[in-house]
Computed example of a mutant assay.
Amino acid sequence: MTSSLPLAITMGDASGIGPEIIAKMLARSGERAIVYGSHAVMTDIVRRLGLDLSIRSVAGPQAETPKAGCIDVIEAGRVVEPPPLGQISAVSGQAAFDAIVAAIAAAKAGEVSGIVTAPIHKEALSRAGITYPGHTEILADYGGVERVAMMLANDEIRTVLVTIHTSLRTAIEQADFAAQMSAMRLAHEGGIALGIAAPRIAVAGLNPHAGEGGLFGDEEIRIIAPAIEAARAEGIDASGPWPGDTVFMQARQGRFDVVVAQYHDQGLIPVKYLGLEKGVNITLGLPFVRTSPDHGTAFDIAGRGIADAASMETALAYAHRLVAARATSLRT
């Protein structure tokens, strides 16, 4: 069962491929969705692609009756004309941020069923004077929650990160007992939301060979193993710490449902290696559903009509799946 409310789709960086993959996705699917972004940018990309679509400005998610072949856009920024494609731009950074904030407000108000975000560019945000390092931190702050986690998923593996957008040195400092517990709890909840009744969660070690009994570092002994025991006491099926270089292979073979990775690249490299077109980013811990394609703005191909919308379509499908699961859980 799907929600009667539309999904919000944020346009992402207007200088990247976000508008293109949104337009292609909606042209193929006929999806009823609301794009938070710029009428001018969406009109320009539809013209460039030669798509048989019209762009309509609307005041709110329910302001107009859905119309076939029409993309409804809520003007969420101050983009008067499309910025140059393939270039880092403060205008695009600000517009992307404004769209995210507006979509979050709509989700919190119950006006949309969830959010699917197109890629943003961190340097463009910075040029606009926005200090958030990425989507996840914006979503947590404006979503009004203290703890969130990234789940990266495809057809073969799922991973949840203990630490996200920070330096490796800082990640080691942040991967404390509380962060381990939060990641395992959210991994458990995320697995259930995806239809896994009792998720089997593998926790990766921080150090090579999971510390090799303290020879290569003692974080596994001091922090990670005690957190796993505490999580198990809460009824979470967690195990480890497992060596990071083999745990994803075991998950791919079906031994585990979710892998908790200690830092960004430890978790994202295995997922992205299996194919960007299959991956989706899910933010756990929010009061609403949020998904995103697992790739960036691809400035090098922006506006050329060759961007693949497959990951965006996967993100949309996951959003519908999670919205339906959330609605079911609220009824029970």
Rank of each mutant, 00 (worst) to 15 (best):
I192Q: 15
E234S: 05
P293W: 12
K272C: 06
G18P: 11
L26E: 07
H209F: 10
L125H: 06
D13Q: 12
A327D: 13
V73S: 08
A307Q: 06
A8V: 01
F299G: 03
S126M: 08
L274C: 00
A183Y: 07
L194Y: 10
A40W: 04
A140P: 03
A324D: 13
A149I: 02
T131A: 14
G211K: 05
M312A: 07
Q180T: 00
A227S: 12
E75Q: 13
I9M: 12
G296M: 09
H39R: 15
A251D: 11
I224R: 09
I115H: 03
I22P: 06
Q266P: 08
S89C: 13
A310Q: 09
G69E: 06
A96T: 08
G77M: 05
R255E: 14
I21A: 11
E313R: 01
A33W: 09
Q62E: 14
G303M: 02
S54A: 15
F288T: 08
S38H: 04
H121N: 15
V35M: 02
S239N: 03
E75T: 04
P82N: 12
V79S: 00
Q62W: 01
L316Y: 15
D98V: 01
I157S: 04
E137P: 05
A227Q: 02
K67L: 15
R47N: 15
V46M: 07
A310G: 00
R185G: 14
M151H: 08
T166E: 14
V280M: 08
M184S: 04
S38T: 07
D98R: 01
A193T: 00
R127L: 15
I269C: 02
A8Q: 05
K278E: 11
S57N: 10
V260T: 12
P270I: 07
L26Q: 10
I223C: 09
A227N: 02
E212C: 10
A225I: 01
A202R: 02
R147E: 14
A179R: 07
T131Q: 10
S113D: 05
L49R: 07
V46D: 04
N207V: 09
E123Y: 03
H165A: 07
T166D: 06
R331T: 14
G267R: 07
T283V: 11
A327Q: 14
I228K: 07
R222N: 12
H188W: 13
A128R: 01
I172M: 13
Y142N: 10
P19T: 13
M312C: 05
G267T: 10
A204W: 03
M181N: 00
P293E: 12
A105Q: 14
V80D: 14
V259I: 12
R78T: 13
E111T: 01
F256S: 05
R32T: 13
V35W: 03
G240N: 06
A153T: 14
I55W: 05
S57K: 15
P19K: 11
S3T: 10
Q94H: 09
L5E: 05
A102W: 00
